[in-house]
Amino acid sequence: MTPAAGEFESIVRLEGVQKYFGAVHALRDIDLSIGRNEIVGLIGDNGAGKSTLIKLMTGVLAPTSGRIFIREREIQPGEYSVRMAHDLSIETVYQDKSLAEKQPLWRNFFVGRQITNRFGFIDIKREKEVAQKILIDTIGFRGVGITVDSTVGNLSGGERQGIAIGRAMHYNADLIVLDEPTAALGVAEVRKVVEFVRRIKQSGRACIYIEHNLAHVHEVADRLVVLDRGRVVSEINPKDMTVPELTEYLIALQHNA
């Protein structure tokens, strides 16, 4: 199914995408393309439309109009869904909506695509084994008292993001979308998440990283896309602007309203 390496330039591309919520015009004329091994920082004020944009890309919402291409193949609107995005190797990590609190980690790793027999019964032993491997190898949790039976509710914010990102990496996602993964995290926890983003880049995948803290995105992104009231207003190479300059620029944007 997946085209071999070299066959496509962009993992996701949007063309003339519009999104309305009733009368609210949340996204206007979006043209955007995400490269195969690119970390794209998506920044903009509250309500700019960042979350809505990635929900369109990941099959949670359907665009009102416009076209979506995944690996240069057009997606039929209406047939796109979270499941299909998973099948196309696109994974999303939300700030607080990626993991179910009261469920053990191993269930969280596999929910939505359980290892089952043909009657739908879960192979618990196998799921736990694989979960254990993800925990140790992909996420690198060792000797911190976290097992596959731990419930998510007992983990710290950074650990949760680690789990969610590790799950995404395990499924060999070509694109990992992070929506404010560091919101409400302490300094040390934020470092862990930034490290996870680096790993995404190193392992040859693409990432869309939504972040309000400019220093964090500036540090890891290859390109910054600025969204303002539903429009892409500029694309910035982080090398061309320091964090203070970027801050100035975004503030100026607000004042030009």
């Binding site: 179910a100 009261k102 469920q103 269930r107 939505g112 019964f121 879960i122």
Partner: peptide, 24 residues
């Protein structure tokens, strides 16, 4: 305890939003 359906029911009880984004 062991079927996909039961697991989905528990995730839905945990959070409708999480359940949607994991593809239930």
């Amino acid at each position: 305890t062991r079927h996909r359906f039961g697991e989905h029911a528990m995730f839905i009880g945990d959070s409708n939003d999480v359940s949607r984004v994991v593809g239930i």
